[in-house]
Computed example of a mutant assay.
Amino acid sequence: MKYPHSLPQAHKQLLDDIIRVFSADPRVVGIGASGSFASDSMDDYSDLDIVIAVEPTHFDGVMKERFQLIDKVNGRVSGFTGEHVGEPRLIITMFEPNTLHVDFKFVSLPDAAVRVDDTQVLWEKDSCLTDTFATREPHYPQPNAQWIEDRFWTWIHYAGTKIARGEYFETLEFISFLRHVALSPLALQQAGLTPSGVRKIETRLPDFAEKLRKTVALPEKASLISAMTQCIEIYRELRSKESVKKDTDAETAAMAFWDKEFSK
C-alpha cells in the first residue's frame, strides 16, 4: 500500500504498528483507512480512521477481544466504545508518544461495503476487502430539503419558547443543532460538497462561514434573538434554491409567535 503524501511521519509509524498487529491475527481479513487518509488531506492534527474487516464466523469473538487486540499496538493511553455516536462497533482511542487519535471500526467482511466515504485498502488476504468494496459505492448521507422544511418552523417556535422562558444555554445548544443538521448541510450540498455538518466549513465555504458567524450568540436574550433571526434568514435563502413544498401555515404561525414575543 502506498501511503498518501500528506501522511505525517508520526501517523505513519503508528499505522505501521497497527498493520503489523492486525495482519498477524488470522481472523482479520482486511485493514482499511478512510477519512482524510483516503482523501490525502491529512495534517498533524488528523485522526486515523481504521476499518478492521473480520471473517464473519469470527466476528463475535473479535468483538469481545477488541481492547486486547488494540493493546498489542504500542502506546494506547485511552479507549472507549462509540455508542454515543451511534456506532457500538467503534473503539475511539488515543496513543502516545505523539498524542494521536485513532478510531478503530470493527466490521464483518460483508458489512465493510456499507461506508460513507472512500476507504483505502492497507492490507488484505487475497483481494477480499477490495472485492467487497467493489460491490457497493460509498454513500454519504444527504440532507433532505423537504424533511428540513417540514420541521424547520416548529423548530423556530421551539427556540422562541426557550428564549422567552429564559433558557438561554438550551437555546445556544439548539442553534448549534440548526447549524449542524440543517443550515450547513444544505449549503454544502448546494455547493456540490460532502454535507458533513460544520466540519472545516471555514475553509470549504468561507463566504457561508461568514454568514454563520452571525448565528453565534451569547447566553443573553438580545444576542439569541439576533442569532436566531440570522438562522431564519440563512434558511430562507437556502430554501429558495430548493424545490420544496413550503409549510406556509407553520411558517406563518412561528413568525407570528416571534413577532408577538420579541417585537415589544
Rank of each mutant, 00 (worst) to 15 (best):
K2A: 14
K2I: 15
Y3N: 12
H5M: 13
L7P: 00
A10G: 03
K12Y: 04
L14V: 05
L15C: 02
D16W: 00
I19W: 00
V21Y: 06
V21F: 02
S23R: 15
S23D: 03
R27T: 06
V28D: 02
V28W: 05
I31P: 01
G35K: 03
F37K: 00
F37I: 01
A38S: 14
S46L: 09
D47I: 02
L48Y: 00
I52P: 01
V54W: 11
V54Y: 11
E55Q: 14
G61Y: 06
V62N: 08
M63G: 07
R66D: 02
F67D: 09
Q68H: 10
L69Q: 11
L69E: 10
N74H: 02
G75Q: 03
G75H: 03
R76S: 04
G79F: 04
G79D: 03
G79R: 04
T81H: 09
G82A: 00
P88G: 07
P88N: 11
P88H: 10
R89G: 07
L90K: 05
T93S: 08
H101K: 13
F104N: 13
K105W: 06
V107N: 12
P110V: 06
A113L: 04
V114N: 02
V114Q: 03
R115I: 08
T119Y: 10
Q120L: 08
V121S: 02
V121D: 01
W123A: 02
S127L: 12
L129S: 11
T130W: 09
D131H: 15
T132I: 12
T132H: 09
T132Y: 10
P138L: 08
P143W: 01
N144Q: 06
N144C: 12
N144F: 05
A145N: 06
Q146S: 04
W147R: 12
E149Q: 05
W155G: 01
W155F: 11
W155V: 00
K162L: 14
F169T: 12
F169L: 14
L172T: 02
I175M: 04
I175L: 15
S176P: 07
F177Y: 15
L178Q: 02
L178P: 00
V181T: 15
A182L: 11
P185T: 01
P185W: 03
Q189K: 13
Q189R: 11
Q190A: 08
L193D: 08
T194K: 15
S196M: 11
S196W: 13
K200T: 07
E202S: 08
E210M: 10
E210D: 06
K214T: 08
T215K: 07
V216G: 02
L218D: 08
E220S: 07
A222C: 01
A222M: 10
I225M: 02
T229G: 02
C231T: 12
I234P: 01
Y235L: 03
L238D: 11
E242W: 08
S243K: 13
K245W: 12
K245P: 15
K245F: 12
D247E: 15
A250V: 05
T252W: 00
M255Q: 00
M255Y: 00
W258N: 03
K260W: 01
E261L: 02
S263G: 06
K264R: 13
